[in-house]
């Protein structure tokens, strides 16, 4: 992993985190948005333009890859590089949580 990618993606935006987290399973944009809404009880909304832009950028940076197409929808999945960045980010969030008194 390059230093540049690490700087760009750690720490990550909430939008970016949830998208990458969801893509441990193969999914398309709209279904990610729906999943995130469920997971956060509607607190986090990812709009169409933001979703499209984030997926394109993550694909370009090699964090996720296009897996197949379903009725014109593109399905994506996380890559090995994406997993590495995701686990860095999860470790950072866990440390944060510990330090504010969580278990």
């Amino acid at each position: 992993m390059t230093e540049k990618l690490r700087r760009v993606y750690v720490p990550m935006t909430e939008t970016g985190f949830y998208i990458l987290f969801c893509l441990r399973e193969e999914m398309h944009g709209y279904s990610i948005g729906q999943r995130v809404k469920e997971m956060t009880d509607g607190a986090v909304t990812i709009s169409a333009g933001t979703m499209y832009g984030t997926l394109s950028k993550m694909e370009k940076d090699g964090l996720i890859q296009f897996s197949r197409e379903e009725e014109k929808r593109k399905l994506y999945q996380i890559t090995v590089l994406g997993e590495e960045i995701l686990s860095l980010e999860i470790a950072r969030i866990k440390r944060l949580y510990r330090n504010i008194g969580g278990v």
Binding site: G29, S47, K72
Partner: peptide, 23 residues
């Protein structure tokens, strides 16, 4: 209004996602 910067031929999934979102 959105400015996608995408080429005409590359927009299948772009339109599909916006349609999914109800646009």
């Amino acid at each position: 209004l959105d400015y996608s910067g995408l080429r005409r031929g590359d927009r299948g999934d772009y339109y599909a996602m916006f349609r999914d979102y109800g646009w």
